[in-house]
């Protein structure tokens, strides 16, 4: 474990806590894409079911349990508890266009053609694009509550921090995980536009608004 990865994981953890806080305090999931959240459940379940048969560490185990359970809880909040505040008519990105290609990519690119390994590859590819319905929704509405932008910033920072972690591991351990690295670069690149507006507007105290 190095500091980049630790802070990456903590940023990921923080993003989910921010999202939960936003939903609970505003009693609304306005501005949050249900499709993106459903894709995250898919990602976590596909990747972290190994917690039942592969022991890594207590840290690793607890994080996996937290990510699976919190993502399912968020779906519950959106679909049941605060259902009236969710507007499916602006959450129109076709998620199946993401899932299909990720299945195909996972069948081609994996470290071993076994069910758990293909599932792992699939989750890595799907995670890299799972934010697209959310970013698409943001693009459509052209604005976002500040708390939602903090959620997105923490979520984007998480994979971005994994990049120096991979560089560090390459030099310290001599090992590269090309599937994770390439997907991680794509994932981070998707946030570039968002981060530009976040740094130039939100962190200067202005509202997150896209130019018309």
């Amino acid at each position: 474990m190095n500091l980049f990865r630790l802070f990456g994981d903590l940023s990921h953890l923080a993003s989910i806590l921010i999202l939960l806080h936003k939903i609970q305090t505003t009693r609304s999931c306005r501005g949050i894409s249900f499709k993106t959240q459903a894709l995250y459940v898919t990602v976590f379940v596909a990747r972290y079911l190994d917690l039942f048969y592969d022991w890594v560490s207590l840290y690793n185990f607890s994080m996996k349990v937290f990510f699976i359970s919190s993502s399912i809880y968020i779906l519950y909040l959106m679909k049941v508890r605060f259902r009236p505040t969710h507007d499916p008519s602006i959450d129109t990105f076709r998620a199946e266009y993401l899932v299909g290609p990720c299945v195909v990519l996972a069948l081609i690119f994996n470290y071993k053609f076994t069910f758990p390994e293909v599932l792992w590859s699939f989750s890595i590819f799907l995670e890299s694009v799972a934010i697209l319905p959310q970013l698409f929704m943001l693009q459509r509405t052209g604005e976002a509550e500040t708390i939602t932008t903090h959620y997105l910033a923490a979520l984007g920072a998480y994979r971005a921090l994994y990049i120096p972690n991979w560089i560090y591991r390459y030099f310290s351990e001599g090992v590269v995980d090309p599937i994770a690295v390439i997907a991680g670069l794509v994932q981070t690149a998707l946030y570039v536009d968002f981060f530009y507006v976040y740094f130039t507007k939100v962190l200067q105290g202005q509202k997150f608004e896209l130019p018309a």
Partner: peptide, 10 residues
């Protein structure tokens, strides 16, 4: 040395 999946990463 080489390429491998980092099993300890989340």
């Amino acid at each position: 040395q080489g390429t491998a999946r980092a099993k300890d990463e989340l």
